[in-house]
Simulated assay, not measured.
Amino acid sequence: MIAIRRARLADAPGIAAVHVATWRSAYADILPEAVLTKLSEPRLTHYYEHGIRLGLAVHVAATYGRNGEPPVLGFCSASRSRESRLGDGEIETLYMLDDYQNRGLGGQLLRNAARHLWQIGCRSVYAWVLRENPSRYFYQRLGGKCIAEGTTIVGGETFAQSAYAWDPIETLLDVNA
């Protein structure tokens, strides 16, 4: 059984493993190889442990194995907006292991993160997505509207990105995907 829930400190290593695996898969033909090979599970584990301790809203899709450890299959993090012109809340990350994509789990994670943002007073939400990332269609299927274009720098190179938004946030909460 797969549970969608708020991340616990013990989930940080699993979150880091998903982060590394999904970046290496999704961005293999997009980002520089050096960026992907330098990804570090221990460094990302520390990053997510720190964030969870500080109250960063991270939700996980997890299942329990034979040894009782919760393998993390995917995760989503969200916070108040860093760019208020785009919305009140921001989806910072949403990553799902390849074998668990197209099962509705990403939508559940996204809606849980949006529900958290709504509960803390956010009335709109957005997510930046690399324009070359095929997952941008996922956001469109869930009703996200492209509201801005921009660039980001990864590994010293500039990449185009698009911001998808749900305004009001309830348009995301009501999606049945």
Score class of each variant (00 low, 15 high):
residue 50 H to E: 11
residue 82 R to D: 03
residue 154 V to Q: 10
residue 68 G to C: 15
residue 135 S to A: 15
residue 142 L to E: 04
residue 73 L to W: 05
residue 109 L to Q: 05
residue 155 G to Q: 11
residue 53 R to A: 12
residue 66 R to C: 12
residue 74 G to H: 03
residue 86 L to T: 06
residue 117 L to N: 09
residue 113 A to Q: 09
residue 96 M to H: 07
residue 128 W to A: 01
residue 64 Y to P: 04
residue 66 R to L: 13
residue 55 G to N: 05
residue 141 R to N: 05
residue 96 M to Y: 13
residue 153 I to Y: 04
residue 112 N to D: 13
residue 162 S to D: 07
residue 82 R to Q: 02
residue 86 L to H: 00
residue 110 L to M: 13
residue 74 G to M: 09
residue 52 I to F: 07
residue 146 C to R: 11
residue 107 G to K: 00
residue 114 A to E: 02
residue 159 F to S: 12
residue 139 Y to H: 09
residue 128 W to S: 08
residue 122 C to D: 12
residue 126 Y to L: 01
residue 113 A to Y: 15
residue 64 Y to G: 14
residue 73 L to G: 07
residue 72 V to N: 05
residue 75 F to P: 02
residue 109 L to K: 06
residue 56 L to F: 01
residue 105 L to I: 12
residue 58 V to K: 08
residue 74 G to V: 14
residue 55 G to H: 02
residue 161 Q to C: 13
residue 134 P to T: 15
residue 147 I to Q: 01
residue 92 E to D: 15
residue 150 G to L: 08
residue 94 L to I: 11
residue 110 L to P: 08
residue 65 G to Q: 01
residue 146 C to T: 00
residue 157 E to M: 09
residue 125 V to N: 06
residue 128 W to C: 03
residue 89 G to C: 11
residue 89 G to S: 05
residue 161 Q to I: 11
residue 80 R to T: 15
residue 119 Q to A: 09
residue 126 Y to T: 01
residue 117 L to C: 14
residue 48 Y to W: 10
residue 137 Y to S: 13
residue 112 N to V: 09
residue 118 W to I: 04
residue 95 Y to G: 13
residue 148 A to K: 12
residue 127 A to G: 08
residue 91 I to N: 00
residue 49 E to W: 06
residue 136 R to K: 15
residue 69 E to A: 08
residue 142 L to A: 08
residue 133 N to C: 14
residue 131 R to V: 14
residue 153 I to H: 10
residue 59 H to F: 15
residue 99 D to F: 00
residue 117 L to I: 03
residue 136 R to N: 08
residue 158 T to L: 10
residue 127 A to L: 03
residue 52 I to T: 05
residue 131 R to D: 15
residue 148 A to G: 04
residue 160 A to Q: 09
residue 141 R to S: 15
residue 162 S to E: 06
residue 48 Y to K: 03
residue 165 A to I: 00
residue 99 D to I: 06
residue 136 R to G: 10
residue 55 G to E: 15
residue 102 N to D: 11
residue 82 R to M: 00
residue 118 W to K: 07
residue 115 R to A: 06
residue 77 S to T: 15
residue 113 A to R: 06
residue 151 T to Q: 04
residue 63 T to F: 00
residue 142 L to T: 02
residue 109 L to V: 01
residue 166 W to I: 04
residue 116 H to E: 11
residue 69 E to D: 08
residue 81 S to F: 10
residue 74 G to P: 05
residue 105 L to Y: 02
residue 49 E to R: 12
residue 50 H to Y: 11
residue 82 R to E: 07
residue 58 V to L: 03
residue 141 R to Y: 07
residue 53 R to Y: 01
